[in-house]
Nucleic acid binder design. Structure first.
Lengths: 130, 130
DNA sequence: GTCATTGCAAAACGTTTGCATGAAT
DNA sequence: ATTCATGCAAACGTTTTGCAATGAC
């Protein structure tokens, strides 16, 4: 299963960097403007491959479509519960996460390997509008 | 929109206590054994109502169906990445969560109102089997 | 030439909804 | 009598998949 080059995949990766935590559909719509023959299936297939290969990160949400993050490094997110915008929270102290993992292990007796942490709040822009 | 009694809802709530963090489909299958005419739509409708009323908790997962927790109190979960079993992590110190919220706010400039924290690891039983 | 990747359309999946019937108040 | 809840089936939105054609190596 050797990976081969494809323009589509390249465009998807570039789109991911340009857009801010987009969904597959948003990537699809963006690329369609300049490359109308691309298919949504191709977008999904490539996003899955890139997640699998550790090139990008998937941000799953309840009910809503997944979003994708061009930054695969471990970091977490806070979502504005009013406008839905997603903000990065890189810079959470590592010791704090380690403490949290320890607390979880103490509660449940299972060693933490990874985590999905999604925070919700109202962003500055939405707060201003009231 | 006054809520009325229904046997179905009662059965769903009891099933939720008996089963361990089940999905809607699992609740449906369990009830069907003793009450075959129940419909999946009714199960979903009632689960949504109970979540809305703060009687139970919804546990959303990426791609997979939602699970439901009969305990509506704030607590989090660790999922066995091998067998999928869900363990409660009640007892995470409140100060630790407060520290985490603070760190998130410091990173992203958004005040945390709520959070979805899902941890992954391999449970004791699965570790034994290798 | 081999076989990974594409576009397309259909299917799969979890979930919600419209509607006529039935049950709770 | 009112109107909320049910069962059923159809619809929904997201994602995956089967397949023949195309393109990378």
């Amino acid at each position: 299963m050797n990976r081969r080059f494809s323009v589509q995949k390249k465009m998807i990766k570039e789109s991911l960097k340009r857009l801010d935590h987009p969904t597959a559909a948003q990537v699809y719509e963006e690329i369609r403007k300049v490359y109308p023959q691309i298919s949504l299936g191709t977008v999904y297939r490539n996003l899955n491959i890139m997640v699998e290969d550790g090139e990008i990160m998937r941000l799953p949400f309840s009910g809503a479509p997944d979003h994708f993050d061009q930054n695969p490094e471990e970091h977490y997110h806070i979502v504005c519960s009013r406008c839905g915008r997603i903000f990065d929270t890189d810079g959470i102290p590592h010791e704090l996460l380690a403490e949290l993992d320890e607390a979880v292990q103490a509660c449940a007796g299972v060693e933490v390997q990874s985590r999905i942490l999604i925070f919700y709040g109202i962003c500055a822009a939405c707060k201003k509008v009231q």
